[in-house]
Nucleic acid binder design. Structure first.
Lengths: 216, 216
DNA sequence: CGCGTTCGTTATAAGTTGTAACTACCGCCG
DNA sequence: CGGCGGTAGTTACAACTTATAACGAACGCG
């Protein structure tokens, strides 16, 4: 690997400032969401005048895209780390919720409302497939004893391009997809605050969903 | 009911202009999302200068809030209409997906990324409970023959304030919640475009989830 | 040590939301 | 039917925003 820290002093300073900008951007996003992110405000917080930041990011969208990529990488890293530590599907579910609650706006940056015209850069799709690979590993590793066949299985057997060369059976593909959609459904509503005031504990609902997925 | 159309001509004109403003707002949102909604642009499209719109909406947030309320009402209406026509849980699931695909940005206006500080007005919470009431009716009406008890049930039995005075058993409460979270999970990812390029048909995944919920 | 790249600055353009002040018209009430 | 009040729409302006252009200064490499 190339170590970017041992480049020329100029580049070292450059990445350092870029990182500082992103840090301020994260705190701003955590406070008021990505739509309220202000390039000028970040510059002022850093003690320099507005247009200076455009030396480091071409425009606001590029800054946000960089944050999205970092968020993807963060999720993929936690998943991969847990998987290498021998995590099963339930552990991955637990890790996912922990990662989401750690910074809800970071979760929404990845899985929240998209801008209609926006096209995800190539990097993120590669990271997504990395995440799916970890998920497929976990799903294929522990086969449920009583896995009822689903009419969805033949369809997934024919359209498994998204799984790449992963040798998971259709039932594992289906389980990975339902893992994704169901847990995202619970998390998304919880983080958006749609459960607040309803009285029950979202953690119990999440636990019930993971139990349904892992078979206790 | 009070018929707002037969008020004074001034008020009639007022509501008419308000409706036209909201119409333009919807097309703008459908094109570029709610964050890109521009009050000035709407005014220009309607042939009047910027600040004129502030006679009809106090500010941008009030306009968006009104759109959110309309979106909630629209969803509640389709649910109620279908329920009155004798729809079962599977029909409601189908109606939900139809309503979502009809205008994805409208769906995101209700269930998308929230602004951290935003507090939903009283109206929307009332409409939400109306939606949940329809859902609970459907869940309580058709009991699944083989409903395995869940460790979530006792918790929901204790915290059922959100269900109001609805006489649904805990298993129905749990089924209504999972209906909501699971279908939202699939729809949210589908509408956000996270399935595009993966190859499989989201409709099949959605159908599989509804079948799992309704027991075929 | 000099020279070029890069950084940060100010000035400026073209937007945005929102307020203030003024005008003109519409319609209600006597 | 006429006057008067309230409402609608206008322009002007303030305070923002993103983003570009042009300039000066400093840094570091050869």
């Amino acid at each position: 690997m190339i170590d970017p820290d041992t480049r020329t002093p100029r580049e070292r300073y450059r990445t350092q400032v870029r990182e500082e900008i992103k840090q301020h951007a994260w705190t701003q996003i955590a406070a008021a969401g990505a739509s309220a992110l202000s390039v000028n405000a970040i510059a002022k917080q850093m003690g320099m005048s507005g247009p200076a930041l455009y030396r480091y990011f071409a425009n606001r969208d590029e800054l946000i895209t960089e944050l999205v990529k970092d968020a993807y990488r963060s999720l993929a890293d936690t998943f991969r780390t847990r998987a290498e530590a021998g995590a099963d599907l339930g552990d991955l579910a637990h890790a996912l919720r922990g990662w989401a609650l750690e910074d809800p706006q970071r979760y929404f940056l990845v899985y929240g409302t998209p801008v209609p015209g926006y096209q995800a850069p190539e990097d993120t799709t590669r990271i997504t497939s990395e995440i799916m690979a970890v998920l497929l590993d976990a799903c294929a590793a522990e086969q449920l004893p009583d896995t009822p066949p689903s009419p969805l299985d033949p369809h997934l057997a024919e359209h498994r391009a998204w799984a790449g060369p992963h040798p998971a059976p259709p039932s594992a593909l289906r389980r990975a997809l339902t893992f994704w959609t169901r847990l995202h459904g619970e998390l998304s509503l919880e983080l958006a605050g749609h459960f607040t005031g309803m009285g029950f504990d979202p953690a119990h609902l999440y636990a019930a969903e993971t139990e349904a997925l892992t078979g206790r």
